[in-house]
Every structure is written in structure tokens, then in C-alpha cells.
């Protein structure tokens, strides 16, 4: 077995899902004996068989990745319960293994994946999905890029055909539930940690939490970063539509048309709203120079 063959063999073995008791499986999905596979390349010693030595790495892999996803999605974990959450992570990573050197990217496709896997969320599928989307938006906003905001003179130069760039850390979400209340309640009780270290991992118990009751109520959220703190800002439907259209690259006049397409507001009221949106966006630095024209601001 050369180096590449050994690494392919072992990668497959350490990524194989564990049993419900967190033990290495005795057989592969194809019915091969894992014991025989382990014996083929791992030496036993006087205390541990080849299987048991390989099992340490199999368990380490799952403890680390489940820990990392759990850190990004504490509210989803609290909603689903530890058992179902862990099963979901196992299934997700079997289907979408990590292709990034950083654990930070591990959960990036989870909301999208969860959308087509209601078997892990049951009757609370939509709520779970929205929690997942908001928790991933938090991650993106937490360490996303911040470009140089438009200055007052740049704002004055804006016209109907201007295509405005939004801050990469600004995430826009339309929700059927006010999930920010639930996510904030869980985050309040979850200490900030770092998953990345060279230490071996033990399986961590997740503390049970009483979650606030959720009733359907449409909310539009702008998840953004200000002074290094991530905020969930409630915006109205029109502001959400406007910002979404701008993010899609539509010129300002077209974006405004989309935003107020079904609005019952009078033109005067619409004008007042637009002034309000732009005042808030300017204050929070949401409009920025594009990456091409701006020098990135490295900090914040």
C-alpha cells in the first residue's frame, strides 16, 4: 500500500458513520468486515486490536465535526435535541464531506441540505430550516468581509441607474417565524468557544434548554455587523425587497419599483420610507464601494 492508497483507505474508514452508541461499525455498507480492513494496515498492540486503534480515529473524526457543527447551530441543536441533531450531522457530512481546510466552512451547505431532508426535523421543518438559515447568516456576518462604506459625497452621486453594492457581511432573510428571538435566547446561554485546536476531542453533552414558544409571524431580518457585534435587525417587507433587488445587481430605480410594487403607501409615504431606509443604511455603512473600486478595510 503506497502513501496515497493508505490515506484513501484510512480517510474512508475514519469518516464511516458510527453506531448509535458511538462505536465503530463492524461492517461497511457493502458488507465487508471492518476488522479485516483495519488489520490490513493498522498494527495491533498488547492492549488494543487494529480495530480498536482505528476506532479511536473514527470517533475523533465524528466528535470533532459534530462539535464544530453544533457550535455553529446551537439553537437548531436545542430544537431538534442532541440525538436527532447528531444523526442529522452524520447524514449531512456523509452526503457533503468537508472540502475546505477550515472547519469554519463545514456547515455552509447545511441549511440548503436540510431543506430537502425533512426526516430530521419532522413537523417543525419550516421552523428548523429558518433557525438553520439564521444561524448560518450569523456565521457569515460574524467574520464576513467589510468593504469601505460609501461616503456622504458618494451617496449624493447616487442616481436612478446606480447599482449599489451591499456589505458582504449583510445577510437578508425573510422568515415565517420570529426565529431571532429563539436564536438569541439560546446564544445568551451558550459560551463562545473555538473549535479549532490540535487537542483530541471528547463527545460533549449539550445542555437542555427551555425554548421560547414560536408562533408564525412574518419577519424580515437584516443580519449585519456593527463594531464587531452581529445584530439581527428587523426591517419591513419593502426594505427587504429593495435590499434584495440591489444585492441582485438591479439599478436603484428598478429596485425601488420592485420594493413598492404591491405597496398601498401613497407616493409621499413611499418617499418618506425611502429616505428612512437610506438614512439607516448610511448610518450602518451597508452601502459600500465594490471590491474592484475600493481598498478593503482589513479590520472590523
Amino acid at each position: 500500500m503506497n502513501l496515497l492508497e493508505l490515506q484513501r483507505r484510512m480517510a474512508e474508514d475514519v469518516r464511516r458513520p458510527l453506531t448509535v452508541d458511538w462505536e465503530m461499525r463492524r461492517e461497511t455498507a457493502e458488507g465487508e468486515s471492518v476488522e479485516a480492513i483495519a488489520q490490513s494496515y493498522v498494527k495491533p498492540n498488547d492492549r488494543l486490536s487494529s480495530f480498536e486503534r482505528l476506532e479511536i480515529y473514527n470517533r475523533q473524526y465524528w466528535f470533532r465535526v459534530i462539535g464544530a457543527v453544533s457550535e455553529d447551530f446551537p439553537a437548531l441543536n436545542a430544537l431538534l435535541g442532541e440525538k436527532r441533531f447528531d444523526a442529522m450531522v452524520l447524514a449531512y457530512l456523509r452526503e457533503i464531506p468537508s472540502t475546505s481546510w477550515t472547519l469554519r466552512d463545514l456547515s455552509g451547505k447545511l441549511p440548503e441540505w436540510l431543506q430537502v431532508h425533512p426526516e430530521f426535523t419532522g413537523r417543525r421543518h419550516q421552523l428548523a430550516l429558518e433557525i438553520a438559515k439564521l444561524e448560518w447568516a450569523y456565521v457569515e456576518s460574524y467574520d464576513g468581509r467589510r468593504l469601505e462604506p460609501l461616503a456622504a459625497e458618494d451617496m449624493r452621486a447616487i442616481g436612478p441607474e446606480t447599482c449599489l453594492t451591499l456589505q458582504p457581511h449583510l445577510q437578508l432573510l425573510a422568515m415565517a417565524y420570529p426565529v431571532d428571538e429563539l436564536v438569541l435566547a439560546v446564544r445568551k446561554d451558550t459560551p463562545e468557544t473555538e473549535m479549532v485546536s490540535s487537542a483530541s476531542m471528547m463527545k460533549k453533552e449539550v445542555k437542555r434548554m427551555k425554548l421560547p414558544a414560536m408562533r408564525k409571524k412574518a419577519v424580515w431580518l437584516a443580519v449585519h455587523r456593527y463594531d464587531d457585534v452581529v445584530y439581527y435587525r428587523h426591517i419591513d417587507r419593502e426594505a427587504y425587497a429593495l435590499l434584495t433587488a440591489l444585492r441582485e445587481g438591479k439599478p436603484l430605480a428598478e429596485a425601488l419599483g420592485i420594493a413598492f410594487e404591491k405597496s398601498r403607501l401613497t407616493p409621499e409615504e413611499q418617499a418618506a420610507k425611502i429616505r428612512e431606509y437610506f438614512a439607516h443604511a448610511a448610518e450602518l455603512g451597508w452601502f459600500c464601494k465594490s471590491e474592484d473600486e475600493a481598498t478593503a478595510v482589513p479590520v472590523q
Binding site: 502513501l3 470533532r64 465535526v65 472540502t99 481546510w101
Partner: peptide
Amino acid sequence: SVDGRYTHDLLPLPYTFEA
């Protein structure tokens, strides 16, 4: 890592001249 997939673990190498 192998074939563009990451284990996020520090896996031991075989102590060979190839390695």
C-alpha cells in the same frame, strides 16, 4: 486530507521513505 476532502484531524503518517 485526500482527494480534496478533509478529515480535520491530525492523522499519523506511515514512517516510510516515500512519506
